[in-house]
Amino acid sequence: MSRAARFKLGVIKRTVELTIDGVAVEVPEGATILDACNKLGIVTPTLCYLSTLTPVNACRVCVVEVEKARVLAPACSRKVEPGMVVHTDSERVRHSRRMVFELLSSSVDMSLVSGEVKGWIDSYGSDAARYGPPAPPAKVGERDARHAGHHHAVDGSVAETVAQPVKIDNDLYVRDYSRCILCYKCVEACGEDAQNTFAIAVAGRGFDARIATEFDAPLTDSACVYCGNCIGVCPTGALMPKSEYDLRQQGRWDEARQTVTQTVCSFCGVGCNLDLTVQDNAIVRVDSPLEHSVTHGHLCIKGRFGFQHVQNLPD
């Protein structure tokens, strides 16, 4: 027997058994309710959750009812406990999920969320219109200037929203915070979960909370290194490569004409996998597969935006 083999540690496997919607399920210790739901094939809506990021459980759309608990629990981050009895489709759960979708839809432009999210919004019966007509969009910089604390009284005739002008301050990506649901994913990807550049953070408070650079500086004047990992995790299209934004503005973005091909970046020896979205023989967007051990979905500026050289062709 080799010495290395003798020192090899075994895997400690403990499992926890719980009941979800009346079905017993066994999952590894430390798993979340979401993991257990996934194992049972129960579809749980999520917005702020991503397997590669630390759960912030801020959106609350994944809430489930845990028996004996006073309030609902976020499935994405609540760890399973032995004997837990969970309901994922009770009236109480459905109400909260509907309301979360409704509150978001009534205050944020959700038109570019994935088909899956659109399906949830519909199936939970969310009705964004019932809070009244939307308030007019904020002017440039207005939301960024709001001070924490006292706000000027509203009269309820219109429903406040986060609508505001798109921020375009560089050639690589745009920030359309009218679409921002404040899921924190971009902050996490820019921060400790991946890039560690911390160019953006949540600033302000309450409904005035927003994603911001320091003093709302343009990206070109911030710590941003244009890795675009914020784009990679954004679930609502608030952050988007300029290449995609321009095509959408021109009405030429056409998913039916697109292919996605996985390949490897050519710009260093790390071996980052790229998902190239190609439309009409041109790369229009670059992502990285979430589940890949090299990148965990994250890239640098060269990988995400450095592809132009293969399509800077003479006319």
Binding site: N57, G156, I181, R205
Partner: peptide, 22 residues
């Protein structure tokens, strides 16, 4: 005013509550 803004029910709910109450 005092909602931290982290979770949707409170961040947007407190706004909608004030509007409806008004």
């Amino acid at each position: 005013d005092e909602s931290c803004g982290q979770c949707v029910p409170c961040r947007v709910g407190t706004v909608r509550q004030e509007e409806a109450l008004q």
